[in-house]
Design a protein around this nucleic acid. Structure first.
Length: 582
RNA sequence: GCGUCCAUAGCUCAGCUGGAUAGAGCGCCGGACUUCGAAUCCGUAGGUCGCAGGUUCGAAUCCUGCUGGGCGUACCA
């Protein structure tokens, strides 16, 4: 499809040159000034070239230029041309496109859509990065799916991707739940209570907060515990390890259930000290300076920002300190060409500081650090507030969705049709959730409407899964019958619906490139919806099976197969499970 | 205060490097199952693209100002 565009662009450019020669007009590189567009309505053509940019060169009205080009182009062209006022509209000759595209998709199969635009590029993507004192919530789910999906898209664009997770397993907040557990725990465990580990620990974090309201010494006690932890007190460390494991086991169960995975885990407890040396070295090299108050700082007045503490006056590290250390360690582990941090936009300032520090320190890869900043997830009532208990728990949400799907399956009487009702329900629930979180541009804040996310109609994940299931169902029937006398005849695909479909199928690789380029999975999400919607329209208007003309069925099935292949490949990129039946 | 992002239909969102009557879904109203699974499709209604200027042949899109909101501006993470 890309070649077709280029081909036409060249044709138009050549014609413009001929026109210029005729009038002895000097025309500066028309190739670069030609604009290719898609007409607003399909019936107006497949490509459109507006002639406005050349009005000045020719001293003619754009419609006149368009009309003259039609004459110059003549009839020896792969398609037909029409003028529409100042526009030159192209109707691509369809038959060969159907044949070519369907062959490419069939040949490349699961590989179709992959490109080499990021070939040889090593990209590390950090995402999720949870605290080990409570279970994951809705905000994490957006982070997780953005990170996972972006990684898969980058990979599809040819990059070598390493997915990493930085576990925040130390600090006062961790000590708080530890403290509460040692006070109120009574040696209970997730096993003894039957509560998932992360929720179990999270309960103690809540208990701490309640207790701290009554006892003003609570915070001091937590600080005390943190000191003990840093000093390596064996009893504290033991408790810490035990509780961390509980939480992590729980969180990893959530990852498994939601199809999120990582290549490497980094632990803050192992990296939080590593940035200190970097800062001290920077002080030595006079990149940083020691403030009157004893803290070591970075002066950012050169980029119009304030100063930032990199090491406290008591010598302990702050948040940026450890990120300085971990990034350097990571570059040693995996010499990335790019490091993408998937982190909420409330931390934009933090990353500005971090990246600028690296630049000043002279790391050549400082420019290759990227903050994929995404917006907050709010509820229709407003922000999620842990204090008011409005935080939506990840596991609860998935379970809730799953139950709703189960109800729907029963309503439709599909239980007997499905091989595994439970896992199908789970897949649909995730499809709904992931699509809902992904179809909005990452950088924008979003409102999570539980009711809407539970819907399976319209612009939703299940809608697209349904299209996949419907095509699969047709293919089962098709393969179960004898169509060996039928022949593939692309000229039979003469409907506008079919043409729209093949254009979308052809567009997929460039969608992957755009999504990779923008680090924006919503581009793929929008594409999948567009494809699904168009297929839906197609099969309502065009009977696929049971046609009197066997050739027609064989030919339409080929198109359906290609759509299915693209759906499958695209689903993978946005982490939606493909279902043969639902 | 300063920085930064956002503002498009009742609601949730699209709208590619500026280009032809601004598009979907949900919701509302009305149609289509003796038909490849109706988790579907088709149709109607609904918009001064926050406001005001500017650049341009041409602006939802670029620039400036204003209004309203989010986030940030910690020796928290």
């Amino acid at each position: 499809m890309l070649e077709i565009k280029e081909q036409w662009k060249k044709l138009i450019a050549d014609s413009l040159k001929i026109l210029a020669e005729k009038g002895s007009i000097n025309l500066d590189n028309p190739e670069e000034r030609i604009i290719i567009e898609t007409p607003p309505k399909p019936e107006m053509g497949d490509l459109a070239f507006p002639m406005f940019p050349f009005a000045r060169d020719f001293r003619k009205a754009p419609p006149a230029i368009a009309a003259e080009l039609v004459t110059i182009l003549g009839s020896d062209i792969p398609g037909t041309v029409k003028t529409a006022g100042p526009y030159l509209n192209i109707y691509i000759s369809r038959k060969s496109v159907f044949k070519d595209i369907l062959k490419i998709v069939d040949d490349q199969a699961d590989e179709y859509g992959k490109t080499d635009s990021l070939k040889n590029e090593k990209v590390m993507v950090e995402f999720s990065s949870p605290n080990t004192n409570k279970p994951l919530h809705l905000g994490h789910l957006r982070n997780d799916i953005l990170g996972e999906s972006t990684s898969r898209i980058l990979e599809a664009a040819g990059a070598e991707v390493k997915k990493v997770n930085l576990i925040n397993n130390r600090g006062v907040h961790i000590c708080r739940s530890m403290l509460a557990y040692s006070k109120f725990g009574n040696d209970e465990t997730p096993e003894s209570t039957g509560i998932k580990g992360d929720h179990f620990v999270g309960n103690y974090y809540v208990k701490y907060n309640n207790w701290a309201k009554e006892d003003p010494t609570a915070d001091d006690q937590a600080q005390e515990m943190l000191k003990k932890w840093e000093a390596g007190d064996s009893e504290t460390r033991e408790l810490w390890e035990r509780m961390n494991k509980w939480t992590l086991d729980g969180i990893q169960e959530t990852y498994r259930s939601t199809d999120i995975s990582f290549d490497t885990y980094y632990y803050e407890s192992e990296t939080y000290l590593s940035g200190k040396d970097v800062v001290l070295k920077g002080l030595e090299d006079k990149v940083f300076y020691k403030d009157e108050d004893g803290s070591i700082r970075l002066d950012m007045s050169d980029i119009g920002l304030d100063t930032k503490v990199l090491l406290r006056s008591d010598g302990t590290s702050v948040y940026v300190t450890q990120d300085l250390g971990t990034a350097i360690a990571r570059h040693k582990d995996f010499p990335f060409d790019r490091l993408v941090y998937v982190v909420g936009n409330e931390q934009e300032y933090h990353f500005k500081v971090l990246f600028h520090a690296f630049k000043r320190l002279g790391y050549e890869w400082a420019d290759q650090l990227h903050h994929l900043s995404y917006g907050m997830v709010n509820l229709p009532e407003g922000k999620m507030k842990s204090r008011e208990g409005t935080v939506v728990d990840a596991d609860d949400l998935v379970e809730q969705l799953e139950n709703l799907v189960l109800g729907e399956i029963k309503n439709k009487g599909r239980e007997d049709e499905l091989d595994d009702v439970q896992s199908t329900a789970h897949a649909i629930a995730l499809g709904a959730l992931n699509y809902y979180l992904l179809h909005i541009s990452p950088y924008k804040d979003m409102i999570f409407n539980p009711k809407e996310s539970l819907s399976f109609n319209g612009n939703t994940g299940p809608y697209m899964q349904y299209m996949g299931a419907r095509i699969s169902s047709m293919l089962r029937k098709y393969n179960g019958s004898d169509y060996s006398d039928g022949q593939f005849k692309p000229e039979l695909l003469d409907s506008d619906e079919a043409w729209e479909l093949i254009k979308l199928v052809a567009k997929f690789p460039s969608v992957v490139n755009q999504a990779a380029d923008e680090l924006n999975p919503s581009v793929v999400a929008a594409f999948v919806y567009d494809l699904s919607r168009n297929f839906s329209k197609f099969y309502h208007e065009n009977q696929i099976l049971n046609n009197e003309d066997m050739n027609l069925t064989v030919t339409r099935i080929e198109l359906a197969k290609a759509v299915l292949q693209v759906l499958k490949n695209a689903f993978r990129l946005i982490n939606i499970r493909f279902l043969e039946k639902m």
